[in-house]
């Protein structure tokens, strides 16, 4: 509709061959340029620099003595790197799936026209407004076997209750998942709730008239129409998972040992505290490749689908 209305106006503008008209045509591109330019320059430009560093033998300070892909060979021979990469897959996968499931359930639940829904929604969303550093502090306390949940339940009389994941190197990675899910599931809930509300009520009524059961209505009508919401949730959750550096630092510090290392903390430790800039840069580039390999096809297909649909 709008394009039909604007067609004559833009046609008229095209005929005005003055300087002002020329500026008017170029200006839109000029004003987009700075945003795009800085975004690309500061991220991809600097990634390129990091890539160059990863080909060198830099240790404490950057230097440009190229050694080819030797740093990558060292990286893949490094046991700690394998732990970190596996952790990211485990953490990211569990985090995204749990948030989606809990968020969807909460949204369906809040959608039952509960009173004071606004206040409830704000409370569910509150953790999202907190710094990951604070989340880390809070959960380090709650998960501390001597102080938090374990001590509390034992105090109620269940002496055998054990919940010491934080200090158990096999389980510690799941404490990160718990804290991160606590932080983000309310956010996914809010997205899903908005999605549920935008579904036409008459669809529900028609399905109910045809005798469809409630679970059937949800799986056949509601879930498919929430697809765009799932898309944006996954994008944002993936972004949070990749950024979880702060959370690891505040909650476990990468420990016990290096059991909860993520690629980001691995890179940080090697570049800044262990004087291995070359190796750290190589790990950053591997991270980049991993992210691009997963996200770009997904982004591409989703956006393409949106354009046609």
């Amino acid at each position: 509709m709008p394009s039909k209305v604007s067609a004559p106006a833009s046609g008229e503008r095209r005929h005005r061959r003055s300087l002002a008209g020329h500026i008017e045509r170029v200006l839109p591109r000029l004003v987009v340029a700075p945003s795009l330019g800085v975004a690309l320059f500061f991220v991809y430009g600097y990634m390129l620099w990091t890539f160059l560093l990863s080909l060198t033998n830099s240790r404490m300070l950057p230097q440009y003595d190229f050694v080819g892909f030797a740093q990558y060979a060292r990286l893949f021979a490094n046991e700690r790197w394998h732990v970190a990469a596996t952790n990211l897959v485990v953490f990211g996968g569990l985090f995204i799936v749990s948030c989606l499931v809990i968020g969807l359930l909460l949204a369906i639940f809040l959608d039952q026209r509960i009173r004071q829904e606004g206040a409830l929604r704000t409370i569910y969303l509150y953790p999202m407004a907190l710094s990951l550093i604070v989340t880390g502090v809070v959960w380090r306390w709650l998960l501390n076997p001597g102080l938090g949940i374990q001590a509390m339940v034992r105090g109620w009389g269940f002496e055998d209750f054990t919940f010491n994941w934080l200090v158990d190197s096999d389980m510690a990675i799941y404490t990160l998942v718990i804290a991160a899910v606590w932080q983000a599931s309310g956010f996914v809930m809010a997205l899903f709730l908005a999605g549920l509300r935008s579904i036409d009520d008459s669809l529900f009524q028609a399905a109910a008239l045809d005798g469809a059961s409630l679970p059937r209505i949800y799986t056949r009508i509601v879930l498919p129409s929430l697809r765009p919401v799932v898309f944006s949730s996954v994008m944002i959750l993936a972004h949070i998972a990749i950024k979880s550096f702060d959370l690891v630092m505040a909650l476990t510090g990468g420990g016990p040992g290096y059991a909860t290392d993520l690629p980001a903390t691995f890179m940080y430790a090697h570049t800044f505290t262990r004087g291995q800039i070359g190796l750290g840069s190589a790990s950053a580039i591997m991270m980049l490749c991993g992210v691009l390999a997963i996200l770009v096809p997904y982004l591409y297909s989703e956006l393409r689908g949106q354009r046609h649909g």
Partner: peptide, 29 residues
Amino acid sequence: FLPTKRTRGTLLWMLSTKMLPPVGVLMPV
């Protein structure tokens, strides 16, 4: 208001920068 063929692509590239871990650019910055 003045979209071109490349508007979607431009947005996509801008957003893609948010998907990269900031540690990757810490050193140069």
